[in-house]
Amino acid sequence: MKKLILASASAIALFGIAACSDTADNTTTQSTPPADTTEPATPPPAEATPPAEPAPAQ
Rank of each mutant, 00 (worst) to 15 (best):
I17V: 15
A9P: 06
T23K: 14
T27S: 15
E39F: 00
K3Y: 02
K2N: 10
L4F: 06
A41M: 11
K3H: 09
A41W: 01
A19T: 08
F15W: 07
E47F: 01
N26Y: 01
M1V: 06
S10K: 05
T42K: 15
S21A: 12
T42F: 05
P50H: 00
T28W: 02
P50M: 05
K2L: 15
A35D: 15
A18M: 14
S21N: 15
P43L: 13
E53L: 15
A11C: 07
A7F: 07
K3I: 09
T23G: 08
Q58S: 13
T23Y: 06
E47C: 07
P34A: 02
T32C: 08
D36M: 11
E47N: 09
K2W: 00
T23Q: 13
A13V: 08
T38S: 12
T42P: 15
P54A: 15
L4Y: 01
P33F: 00
S8F: 06
A18Y: 03
K3G: 04
T32L: 13
I12T: 10
T28D: 08
P34G: 04
A24V: 14
E53C: 07
A55Q: 12
A19D: 10
D25Y: 00
D22W: 03
G16Y: 00
D36Y: 03
L14C: 11
L14R: 05
L4A: 13
P40C: 02
A7W: 02
A9N: 07
Q58Y: 05
Q30S: 12
A55H: 02
S21K: 12
D22T: 10
A48G: 09
I17N: 06
Q30Y: 02
A18E: 10
T32R: 06
A24G: 10
L14H: 02
A11K: 03
A7P: 04
A9I: 15
P50W: 00
P45C: 08
S8T: 10
L14W: 02
P44V: 05
P54C: 03
T27V: 11
D36F: 02
D25N: 15
D22M: 11
T37S: 15
Q30W: 03
